[in-house]
Amino acid sequence: MANGAPPRLFTVGSVLADIRLDVPHLPGRGGDVIGSGASISAGGGFNILAAAARQGMACIFAGRHGNGPYGAQIRADCAREGIATVHPPASDGDSGFCLVMVEPDGERTFVSSPGVEAALAGRRFADLPLRPGDIVFASGYDLSYPELGPAIAAWMASLPRSIGFVIDPGPLVADIPASVMAQVMPRATVWTMNRREAELLTGTADPAAAPRRMQLSPDALFVLRDGAAGAFVLTSADQAPVLVPSPAVTMVDSTGAGDTHAGVLIAALASGLDALTAVARANAAAALSVTRRGPATAPDARALDRFIGVAAKCPVRRAAEVD
């Protein structure tokens, strides 16, 4: 905390609308399928903010949002979650959207169409009222946009280490320019991604080898999410990864599970929990979220505490002990 004030979470990039559909399977090229259960809600960076806000953390959306129906949906959902917005609606268009197709086994596939959130349009990140201890989140969507990504990277590099930066490169990790990666990697205080993203970024999904192929700060927290197994945690460059297991659940929809994990992880670390305990809490939140249909299904703090209380306790194991 800075001067007694608790840390706040800011996101400066992608909050867009999720158009969600349940599908029996993905259509083949040139084909079609009949979807069901269609819904529209705020998505992208909103899911991280909502997950952290439900844990009691103050959250601020400092990105752009549009003047059409998608922007209106985003503002309504932010207001419902108590997430503050910094900017007024943009005058040059609507927010973007993401088509989310969810198959019967809970796996999801995305197609994204950026909107006003992808452009700077005169914004100055330096004007944000950050204070020591605050945390900024950036996703791979933010960093891959041609205008937004370099601006975020340069801003990150200029800020003092008292401001935390959490990076989740997400599915677009391979689209982030090398010049942007070279700036954000050393500045990140927390880097979290899944095995597929690690493979795309570093050429390996090995939890020990992947961070060695990156340019992270020696004191950065590295988290490699491994689905139902849990997450590997590396707290410093000279330590071995630790596997923090996840509670066993039946998945119905994996949409937003990584966002839930990131948001709860940020809130847990900001509350003073150590890395392994914070990741265990994030694992439980992500596990609970996949038992619910929809994008922003992170539990609130009370529901998460109840779930952790009844979940089977699993021992923490070193990566070398895992087959």
Rank of each mutant, 00 (worst) to 15 (best):
P132Q: 08
P207S: 10
S112H: 14
S112I: 03
W191F: 05
V184P: 08
R75K: 13
G106L: 10
V86A: 06
A174Y: 08
T85K: 05
S95A: 04
F125A: 12
L201D: 06
V180N: 04
P88G: 09
W191N: 00
V86E: 13
D77I: 07
V136Y: 00
R123E: 05
A151Y: 03
I74E: 06
W191R: 00
A126M: 12
L172G: 11
W191T: 01
D92F: 14
Q183E: 13
M156H: 05
M101A: 14
R124Q: 14
P207A: 12
P146T: 15
I176L: 05
T204Q: 10
M185H: 14
P171F: 06
G115Y: 09
A151C: 10
T202H: 03
P160K: 04
L128F: 06
P150A: 04
N67S: 15
T85W: 07
P132V: 08
A84K: 10
D134I: 02
A84N: 12
L201Q: 03
D134S: 00
I163R: 00
V166W: 06
A119D: 12
A79M: 00
D77W: 09
A138N: 11
G115A: 01
L201N: 08
V100I: 15
A182V: 06
Y141W: 10
S162V: 02
A198T: 08
C78D: 04
D92P: 02
T85N: 11
H87T: 11
G93A: 13
L172P: 07
G66H: 06
V136M: 00
R161L: 04
V136C: 09
N67A: 12
I135F: 04
P89C: 04
P114V: 14
G66Y: 01
A182I: 08
N194M: 06
L148Y: 01
M185N: 01
Y141S: 11
P88C: 05
L201K: 02
L201S: 13
V116G: 05
A90Q: 10
L99N: 02
I176A: 05
D94S: 06
A208P: 01
F137N: 03
T204H: 05
Y145R: 15
D142I: 04
R80A: 14
E199Q: 15
I135C: 06
D92Q: 13
V102R: 11
L159M: 14
G149M: 11
V180G: 02
A208W: 09
S112E: 07
C98R: 03
A209Y: 02
A76F: 11
T109H: 14
R123H: 02
A208K: 09
V86H: 15
G106N: 09
S113V: 15
L143P: 01
S179A: 15
G122V: 00
A151L: 06
M185V: 04
A188D: 00
G115C: 08
D175A: 13
A188P: 01
R131K: 08
G68L: 10
P88T: 06
L130K: 02
I74Y: 12
F137V: 03
T192G: 10
L159G: 01
M101W: 10
A178C: 01
G93M: 10
A79N: 09
